[in-house]
Amino acid sequence: MSRRAITSAAMPLLLALFAVSAQAAPSPLVISEQGSFAVGGTIHTEPGTFANNAPTAAGQSLHADHLYAFYQVPEKPRRLPVVMLHGAYQSGRSWETTPDGREGFQTIFLRRHFTTYVVDQPRRGRAGNSSVAAAIEPAPNDQLFFDQFRLGAWPEFFGGVQFDRRPETLEQFFRSVTPNTGPYDARVISSAMTALLEKTGPAILFTHSQGGEPGWLTAMASPNVKAVVAFEPGSGFVFPKGEAPPEMPSAAGTLKPVEIAPADFALLTRIPIAIFYGDNIPADPTAERGKDNWRVRLAMARLWVDCVNRHGGDARLIHLPDLGIRGNTHFMMSDLNNLQIADEVSKFLAAKGLDQSEHPQ
């Protein structure tokens, strides 16, 4: 291989390392306000009278199915805050410090003067009280997630992957995994998210992976959602009844569309939507489970964007390799080049007039 070829192949990794170096000593971060709260959810009360000295379930209540939100407000905030909803087996930590210790989207967008709300969805993380029982099994699944989240094909990382390969970074990544404490229910999540949007007012919604479906449901339910930026939605693609594409089989299982009322789907056409997908997603079927899993999801997302636009909406799909941005995993918001990904998001927000200051000069 020639020196030119070696240099060309190494360039994405070198650029990522430069980005890490640039972030090594960030400037002081000024926050005017921060806090946390629970919102949404249910209250279940058992009949009877509570006995203080002989307590049973009788007469007691259970607060459950709410979400947890942590917020930070910068100096001179922009008009619209950003609400960040995580994906499967994750919590709000997805948006926080990256596994290799750099600033994640929570802080990156705070530095860009967006108020941020980072969510733990109902029945997950710091919102663990569930109204429905579920068993939590200590199932070994680290290697599955390494493959499925496209770090590589265990035990090898993909060449040029935008993930720091140090063992301690992989350790942090695996320890970000957290289970459901109750059955996953997209409508329970969207109900709590809608309640959150009533509190925040108009906002931009970021979703990741499994957060895609409750994100679409929230956008349909709440007029306060002014845009959706979805990072690799993995399931729950909603289509108007009668317009859903066929199910898509893959080496990882079959991806099924979700049919909804046409009037509900039409609500998604009132806001701008951007969907981002990363690298190492094949165009053709493959026996490699971790890759084929995302082949059908990217294909379904393309059909979904076409459907939204066919109904008069404003949706676009950004496949990062098409922009020359390579090596991104399923967690592009915490990859080595997450500043570059944030720049692409900022371009979209600026193009749609969603980054205006709260108090313009």
Rank of each mutant, 00 (worst) to 15 (best):
V119I: 14
Y89H: 15
S131Q: 05
P47T: 07
S130H: 02
R112I: 03
P77S: 10
T49I: 03
A57E: 12
M84P: 01
A64K: 01
A88E: 11
E96A: 12
F50L: 12
Y89T: 03
V73W: 06
W95Q: 03
F109W: 13
A88V: 08
T115H: 11
V119S: 04
M84S: 13
L85F: 10
D100S: 13
V82N: 02
E96M: 11
Y89S: 06
N129S: 15
A127P: 04
F114T: 03
V73A: 09
R79C: 14
F105W: 14
T115F: 06
V83S: 07
P122C: 10
T116S: 14
G104I: 11
A88S: 06
L110N: 02
R111D: 08
T56W: 04
T45K: 01
K76I: 11
A69K: 00
T97F: 10
Q60W: 01
Q90E: 12
Y68T: 08
A88P: 02
I108W: 01
R112D: 11
V118W: 05
M84R: 00
G92N: 09
T45C: 00
P99R: 05
P99A: 09
T98R: 06
F105M: 12
T98A: 00
H66P: 09
T97I: 11
H86C: 09
E46Y: 05
R78Q: 09
Y89M: 14
G125H: 03
V118Q: 03
S94N: 09
